[in-house]
Write a protein that binds this DNA or RNA. Structure first.
Lengths: 226, 226
DNA sequence: CCGTATTTGTCCGTATGTATG
DNA sequence: ACATACATACGGACAAATACG
């Protein structure tokens, strides 16, 4: 389990030092290593990475624009804490984008892409059977990432990933997982079927419904758990 | 009437030096002062702003994440040039978000907000009558910015503004304005009416159609102009 | 309330890589 | 192809602001 891990979402463009630092800090945040609300120490990270503070500062500025950290003048940068209201708003946007994703995929999906999706479904089934919740979680992210990627719209991917990261950050805040574990796996199959039917309206509605259900699960978990 | 000035979209978070520098560079880009594709000279900007290169570098990193510039290792950062394909993809997302905006506004719009929109419509009429294309352009941005702001969804506003900036950048590339000048003013009135009717489906469809028309105007301008 | 320590904000110097004659 | 000039990438140091005792 040393592994480079299911490095959740690594697409931080560059081979420059500050780019690498940004990837690493992002990973630290999304993995929960840096707790939400916690202040981030520039010097600490710099020494930890063996660099000077310059690249760290640039990386943090990037993450700020990315929405993963917030910054207070002369006080430092903090891991951003997403409120329930903000998560709700994020879901609002995500539903709209998910519908778009579904509509587009129904028009453009290839057999090869469908095979990839089916493979992911099988993996998720296996994870569910084995009660490997961590793996299911990673696969769930991969599944939705694949969907948006298959659309072939870079702008859409960018927006969607940003929202995904924010929701991931929100889940770290509390203890509940809006994923719903095995529950959402059935929905995933419906999604793939709807896309395979090549009916844009149906695929769009199915994906939107999945996002809505995910939101509902979040609320339910909040009511019961918190 | 006196107007808050042409400062197109200033919401660049901070009072820190690098924040100010970022705002200024962004303004320079969006105003066309820095031409698309042009390489940005760090030292040049630093001396121009009377700062060192540190804040400039941080600002550029922020603008990179923001999508306004791209960076090549050991070569520098360049003002990003949006291709027609990318603009098209951006419109795809924008249409989806515009529909969301319309649906939400139909549910939540207040009389005070409607008054503000009507005031903007009047201003745009005046600009059209006076053939003040620059002012119409600014008001057009204000109008759509007001719409998304009235939804009260920060995440949505953020995504939408990002797309708007990209499309603005695209228009700077060529010479055509996808705004359509007076043509789109009639559509703006339809939008406000649809929202005032408090029918989510109608408002959503109207706003989506407006975005689609804007995209169509862009293509038409490209076919004839370029 | 004041002094000290830590951290951030900024600046400058050096090395490395790229473009040009 | 080589050498020169220039810009970026990074590291280190100083000053200001904040937090703590």
């Amino acid at each position: 389990m040393n592994a480079p891990m299911p490095t959740i979402l690594h697409l931080v463009q560059s081979n420059t030092l500050s780019g690498l630092v940004q990837s690493e800090i992002e990973r630290s945040i999304l993995s929960g290593e840096l707790r939400v609300g916690e202040r981030i120490n520039e010097s600490g990270l710099a020494t930890r990475f063996g660099t000077s503070r310059g690249p760290v500062r640039e990386a943090l500025r990037g993450l700020q624009e990315c929405g993963l950290v917030r910054s207070e003048k002369n006080r430092g940068v903090f891991v951003r804490e997403i409120s329930i209201t903000e998560a709700d708003q994020t879901y609002d946007v995500r539903e709209a984008l998910d519908e778009l994703i579904g509509r587009r995929l129904a028009q453009s999906i290839t057999v090869k892409q469908l095979e990839a999706l089916h493979a992911l479904l099988a993996d998720m089934d296996a994870a569910t059977a084995g009660h490997d919740i961590a793996r299911y979680h990673a696969l769930n992210l991969q599944f939705h990432d694949a969907l948006v990627e298959f659309v072939g719209n870079a702008r859409l991917s960018e927006c969607y990933r940003r929202l995904t990261k924010e929701l991931l950050l929100f889940r770290l805040r509390g203890l509940q997982d809006g994923g719903g574990f095995g529950v959402s796996n059935a929905e995933h199959k419906e999604i793939v079927m709807a896309i395979a039917s090549r009916d844009p309206a149906r695929a769009g509605a199915t994906l939107r419904a999945h996002a809505a259900d995910s939101r509902a699960r979040m609320h339910k978990a909040l009511d019961t758990g918190a």
